[in-house]
Design a protein around this nucleic acid. Structure first.
Lengths: 258, 258
DNA sequence: CGATGGCTTGAGGGTATTCAAGTGACGTGG
DNA sequence: CCACGTCACTTGAATACCCTCAAGCCATCG
């Protein structure tokens, strides 16, 4: 979508501030693995100046290269992280849902956004000042270490993403996407629903909607899956993983990389 | 190169241990921006159990998924970080030279390598135990914060890398590679030498050698550059950057991302 | 019932890859 | 000094893959 269309959406749709309720944020944060073991006083400081916002589907949360004061944790919904090139193409960096954190790296980019973020479903996000994060990271080596671990996991995922684009075909990338949707230790048949519409899945995987559609059918021919709308039934997960993971350096289930 | 060929190289070529000289390592480390402001006692601990190794061209430094005890800092030479897929393709994650650090993320992967590393030129690397790094990160929030900053910069570079593969053509990626070789504030004409052979540049950019060759000539037609062997003369850097950066979300010079 | 939006299908084109042959620089050995 | 082999690179032709553009399908909704 062209950036101007997106901007008009900002004007059209009101953003909702949710009444503050710190103790509830605290519980939200506690449920995120990164914050599991966090000391109470640090949690308090994080939630002290934070608030929750609801972004309607289609609304921009922030734009690339604007200055940023906050980072975000998704309570519900889906958020697209992306960049736009000068000639109008869109590169989707990630699409994430509840429990995921975004915008946190801007601390290290002079508090400027290094990408844009948009709600692709109605989404509620907890909004926390970057300065507070920065302060806590500077003070608590334990917290900084946990954060570092988290950052490295993100980085590893991204390396895998890059690898996929370098060596996998479109049908393989689609299959890999499906595999990562599968719950661990699931039994055949596995019934999946695509988490967002096919258009978005396509661009999430760096391909056009048409290529996605055709690729899905190639996958069907090769791996014994059924497609009915956005519901996909995997009859033989081994068949699927051998189809996809042959073009990858790690094999199913690639635990940490999901 | 198939992995077996690489492994035979390990057997063929002796690896040299360089006599220990801690005070010299300390000076080496001091010169790396990440360690500029590091306290002396931390530097001491880092260099205490470290040593230097010389890897001849073509030698594997470590292999994907082996356990790892060390991380590495390049004193001289070039190192390729890569992965191999099950069907024998190679995905190059990065190619780095002196001053760069690699293998440090393995702390967070249960001390297992998440990629392979190979010297592509005769290279000297400083070898430092991961446990020591881990300890220091755990103790010093200041060091952890600096390390976090460093990690985030790496991540930003990689995001850009991903973006390039998503939206740029082969000639654009080549041009972008050349631009990143240019010294800042250089005046026309700029004369560059490719840092390693064209085959490697090609796979570094995720394309075949043939595509690289053809792409370079397309660049020549479009942007007024001269190619003579591995020497490239840029007569008009604006022409080059407008050719490449139109397919990117940031424009030349993309400072931090080089 | 017609309009819309998400998705699919078809035809054609462009870009990168594969396979194969050729060129040119360089070093070695006669 | 030249013939030869090797290696890095280039070039050509054929192919595969993905993209673009266009039309069509189908469910949903006013």
């Amino acid at each position: 979508m062209p950036i101007l269309t997106q901007i008009t959406k900002i004007i059209d749709i009101p953003m909702l501030h949710v009444p503050r309720n710190n103790s509830s944020y605290k519980n939200e944060l506690k449920q995120i693995p990164l914050f599991h073991k966090l000391e109470d006083n640090i949690l308090d400081r994080l939630t002290e100046n934070s608030f929750s916002k609801i972004f309607p589907k289609g609304q921009i949360i922030y734009l690339h290269e604007e200055t940023s004061e906050y980072f975000y944790i998704i309570k519900s919904g889906w958020v697209k992280i992306f960049r736009e090139t000068f000639d109008g193409q869109e590169a989707i960096i990630d699409i994430i849902n509840d429990g995921h954190i975004f915008g946190e790296t801007h601390i290290f980019h002079n508090y400027a956004n290094n990408a844009s973020a948009m709600a692709i479903e109605n989404s509620e996000v907890i909004t926390i000042p970057l300065k507070i994060l920065s302060n806590i990271l500077n003070e608590s080596s334990h917290f900084a270490y946990e954060w570092l671990k988290f950052t490295n996991m993100k980085q590893a995922k991204q390396e895998m993403e890059l690898e996929h684009h370098l060596v996998q075909t479109a049908p393989q990338r689609i299959g890999c996407f499906l595999l990562r949707l599968c719950p661990l230790n699931a039994n055949n048949p596995i019934i999946l629903n695509l988490p967002y519409d096919k258009n978005l899945v396509a661009s999430r995987l760096g391909m056009k909607a048409e290529t996605f559609s055709r690729g899905l059918h190639k996958l069907k021919e090769g791996t014994n899956i059924d497609i009915k709308g956005s519901t996909i039934t995997i009859h033989d997960i081994n068949s699927l993983s051998s189809f996809c993971c042959s073009g990858c350096s790690s094999s199913y289930p690639c635990q940490d990389l999901k």
